[in-house]
Measured scan of single mutants.
Amino acid sequence: SSEEQMCGTHRETKKIFCEVDRSLLCLLCSSSQEHRYHRHRPIEWAA
């Protein structure tokens, strides 16, 4: 659903897949302290 594609923290669309956590992130989350050094892919890659 579209609600699942929205970041609850930043209200941004989740467009990035974190390979380490195997989760979807928004651009702001992907550059956060928690995920900054993880490997990321565009969401299309994970589909």
Rank of each mutant, 00 (worst) to 15 (best):
H10K: 02
C7S: 03
H10A: 03
S32N: 10
E4N: 11
S31K: 08
R39M: 10
S32D: 12
T13N: 05
Q33I: 15
M6W: 03
H40G: 05
W45H: 15
G8W: 09
E34L: 03
Q5N: 07
L28E: 15
C26F: 00
E44V: 03
E44W: 03
S32A: 09
S30I: 05
P42L: 07
K14A: 12
I43W: 06
H35Y: 00
C7I: 01
H35Q: 00
V20D: 14
A47R: 13
R39L: 10
S31N: 14
R36Y: 02
Y37E: 14
F17G: 03
K15C: 06
H40R: 04
R39H: 10
P42M: 06
T13L: 09
S32K: 05
Y37C: 12
S23N: 01
S30H: 04
H38R: 03
S23R: 13
G8P: 14
L25G: 03
E4I: 10
A47C: 03
A46H: 08
S2L: 09
A47W: 10
I16G: 04
R39I: 14
R36E: 07
E4W: 04
R11I: 06
S2C: 09
T9E: 12
L25I: 12
C29V: 00
K15F: 07
S23W: 00
Y37W: 09
S32H: 05
E19G: 03
H40E: 05
R36G: 05
S2D: 07
E3D: 14
S1V: 10
L25Y: 12
D21F: 04
L28K: 13
E3G: 10
C7G: 05
R22M: 08
R11V: 04
C18H: 01
K15P: 01
H40W: 03
P42E: 13
V20K: 14
Y37R: 11
T13H: 13
F17K: 08
L25P: 00
S1G: 04
V20Y: 12
S32T: 08
H38T: 03
Q5T: 07
Q5E: 03
S32L: 07
E19K: 03
H40T: 01
E4L: 08
C18Y: 01
K14I: 04
R41A: 11
T13S: 11
P42K: 14
E12F: 12
H35I: 01
L25K: 03
I16R: 05
R22T: 02
S32I: 00
S1M: 04
T9K: 15
E3P: 09
A47D: 15
E4M: 13
A46T: 15
D21M: 03
D21Q: 14
V20W: 10
L27K: 14
I43D: 15
I16K: 09
T13I: 13
I16Y: 11
L28H: 08
T9L: 14
I43M: 06
E19F: 00
M6T: 06
L27S: 13
S2F: 15
H10V: 01
A47N: 12
K14G: 04
E4K: 04
L25Q: 06
Y37N: 15
H40F: 02
L28Q: 15
W45M: 15
E12D: 13
R22P: 12
Q5F: 06
S2E: 09
C29S: 00
I43E: 15
E34M: 05
R41Y: 03
M6G: 04
L24C: 09
Q5Y: 13
K15I: 07
C7L: 02
E3Y: 03
D21S: 12
E19H: 00
R41Q: 14
Q5A: 06
H35E: 00
G8I: 11
H40K: 00
H40D: 11
F17V: 07
E12L: 13
R36V: 09
E34T: 07
R39D: 15
H35T: 00
E44L: 04
F17A: 03
E12I: 07
R41V: 03
V20S: 11
F17M: 11
T9A: 09
W45D: 15
S1W: 02
W45N: 15
R41P: 06
S30V: 08
L24T: 11
L24Q: 10
A47E: 06
R11H: 14
A46W: 10
P42F: 08
S2N: 04
A46R: 08
S2Q: 06
K14M: 09
G8S: 11
E34S: 08
Q33W: 07
Q33S: 10
R36A: 13
L28C: 06
E44K: 07
E3L: 09
A46I: 01
Y37L: 14
R41M: 06
H10D: 07
L28G: 10
C7W: 05
Y37T: 13
L27H: 15
E3T: 05
R41S: 13
S32M: 10
R22Y: 05
Y37V: 08
S31H: 05
L28A: 13
R36C: 02
R22G: 14
L25M: 04
K15M: 04
C18P: 01
R22Q: 14
H35G: 01
T13C: 09
C26E: 01
E12K: 15
G8M: 14
R11S: 09
T13K: 09
E34K: 08
H35D: 01
H38P: 02
E34C: 04
E12Y: 11
H35P: 02
E3S: 10
A47L: 05
E19T: 04
S32R: 13
S23H: 08
E3A: 13
H38W: 02
R22F: 01
V20G: 05
C29Q: 13
S23E: 14
T9R: 11
P42G: 12
S32P: 05
Q33A: 10
S30R: 02
I16M: 11
I16H: 04
E19C: 08
C18W: 00
H38I: 00
M6N: 00
Q5I: 08
R36Q: 09
Q5H: 07
H10Q: 02
C26Y: 00
I16Q: 05
L24F: 11
I43C: 09
K14Y: 04
E12A: 14
R39V: 11
C26V: 00
I43L: 06
Q33D: 08
S2K: 10
C26W: 00
G8E: 13
R22I: 03
E44M: 05
R39W: 07
V20E: 14
S23A: 12
R22V: 04
W45G: 15
F17R: 07
W45Q: 15
W45E: 15
T13D: 06
G8T: 12
L24W: 11
V20I: 10
K15H: 01
F17D: 02
S31I: 11
E12V: 11
K14E: 09
K15Q: 08
E12H: 09
K14C: 09
E4D: 12
L28Y: 13
S23V: 10
L25D: 02
C26R: 01
H10P: 04
R11T: 10
E12T: 13
L28V: 15
S30C: 05
R22E: 15
M6Q: 08
L27A: 14
S32F: 05
C29A: 02
I43H: 04
C29D: 04
G8C: 12
D21Y: 11
E3M: 08
E19M: 03
R39T: 13
R36I: 09
E3V: 07
C29G: 02
K14H: 02
E3F: 07
Q33Y: 14
F17E: 05
A46F: 09
C7V: 02
P42R: 09
Q33F: 09
R22S: 10
I16T: 06
G8D: 12
H38L: 00
L24S: 07
Q33N: 11
R36K: 10
R22N: 13
I16D: 06
H10Y: 01
S23Y: 00
R11E: 02
I43Y: 15
R11A: 10
S23C: 11
S2H: 09
E4P: 09
L27E: 15
T13M: 15
S30N: 04
L27Q: 14
C7H: 05
D21R: 10
Q5P: 08
R39Q: 13
S2T: 10
E12Q: 13
L27D: 14
E19R: 03
L27M: 15
P42D: 05
E44F: 01
E19Y: 02
Q33P: 15
F17I: 05
E3N: 07
C26N: 07
Q33R: 08
W45F: 14
E3I: 05
H38E: 07
T13Y: 08
L27C: 15
I43A: 15
G8V: 12
G8F: 15
D21W: 09
D21I: 01
I16W: 08
M6H: 09
S23D: 11
R22W: 04
I16C: 06
M6S: 04
C26D: 10
L28T: 15
D21E: 10
S31W: 13
I43N: 14
V20M: 12
L28I: 15
S32G: 12
E44C: 04
E4A: 09
C29K: 01
C26S: 01
T9C: 04
M6A: 04
C26G: 02
H38Q: 04
E19P: 12
A47Q: 15
W45P: 15
S1C: 01
S31G: 12
A46L: 12
H38G: 01
E12M: 10
L28N: 13
H35S: 03
F17Q: 03
E44D: 11
K15G: 08
D21N: 12
R41W: 06
P42A: 13
C18T: 05
G8K: 12
K15A: 07
I43G: 09
H10S: 03
I43F: 15
S23Q: 10
L27N: 15
T9S: 10
L24G: 08
I16A: 02
H35L: 00
M6Y: 07
C18E: 07
H35M: 00
Y37P: 08
L28D: 10
H35C: 03
S1R: 04
S2I: 12
R36L: 10
E3H: 08
R22A: 08
S30A: 15
S30K: 02
Q33H: 09
S31D: 08
P42H: 08
F17N: 02
Q5D: 14
C26P: 00
